[in-house]
Amino acid sequence: MARKIIEVSKLGKVKAFWRRANAFAEEAYNAPYRSAIARAQRDQDDLFMLLVYSELMGIPNPATFYTMELQPLMLERFHEWHIRMGMEHSPLDNMRCC
C-alpha cells in the first residue's frame, strides 16, 4: 500500500515536470511570432472599428462597391451554406438564391 502511494506521488511529480516543460517549449516556440500576431490583431481591430464607426455615422461602406464582382461566387457559396444548415430557402429576404 505504501509503495503504491509512493508510485502515485512520483507519477504526479513526473506529470508536473512534463507540464512545465511543455509550457516552456510552447513559450519558446511562440515568442518570435507574438509581435506579428499582435500587429495582425490590431490591424483587424482597426478595420472593424472603421467599418462600425462609418456605419454609425451614415457613411456608406466602400467595400460594397469593390466587392460587387464577388456576388456570383458568394451567392453560390451562400446557397450551399444554407442547404448545409438545413434551411430549404434563403433566410435573408434580399438574397434569393433558390
Score class of each variant (00 low, 15 high):
A2F: 07
N61G: 00
T67M: 05
I6W: 04
L51N: 03
L56A: 10
R39P: 05
Q41C: 06
E55L: 14
S54H: 09
K15L: 15
Y53H: 09
Y53K: 12
S35Y: 02
A63Q: 07
L50N: 12
A2S: 11
L70Y: 02
K4G: 15
R19L: 01
H79K: 11
V52Y: 04
C97V: 13
Y53V: 12
R3H: 15
R20Y: 04
F78I: 04
L73P: 07
G12L: 11
M74Q: 05
K10D: 10
F78N: 06
P62H: 01
Y29K: 12
M74W: 05
N94F: 07
F17M: 08
A31T: 07
L47I: 02
S54V: 02
L47E: 05
A36Y: 10
S54C: 09
R42C: 05
C97Y: 07
P72A: 04
L11D: 12
R39V: 10
V14L: 14
Y29D: 08
A23N: 11
D46Q: 13
F24A: 15
C98D: 13
L92F: 05
I37A: 05
R39H: 10
E26H: 13
K4S: 15
M87V: 02
V52N: 01
D46R: 11
L56F: 14
L56D: 06
S54M: 10
F24M: 13
Q71M: 08
R20I: 02
A38I: 04
F17P: 12
L70D: 05
V8N: 14
F48Y: 15
S35R: 04
N61L: 00
E55P: 06
L47F: 08
A2V: 11
L11G: 11
E80R: 11
H89R: 14
M1I: 06
M87N: 14
R96F: 15
D93K: 15
I37C: 01
L56H: 12
A40P: 00
R3M: 15
R19G: 01
I83V: 08
M74F: 04
E26S: 06
I6K: 07
E69M: 08
S54L: 08
L75S: 12
V14K: 14
G86Q: 01
M85D: 01
G86S: 00
G58Q: 00
M87S: 12
M95R: 03
R84C: 03
D93E: 13
R39C: 03
H82G: 01
Y33C: 05
E26V: 09
A63E: 10
I6R: 06
D46N: 14
A23K: 14
N22L: 14
K10G: 08
I6C: 09
D45T: 03
M68V: 02
K15R: 14
R96W: 09
W18L: 12
D45M: 02
P91M: 00
L50P: 04
A25G: 08
W18I: 13
K10Q: 11
Y53Q: 09
R34D: 15
L50G: 10
M74K: 06
I5Q: 13
P62A: 00
S54N: 11
M49D: 12
R39F: 08
R42T: 10
A38C: 08
L73G: 11
L92K: 03
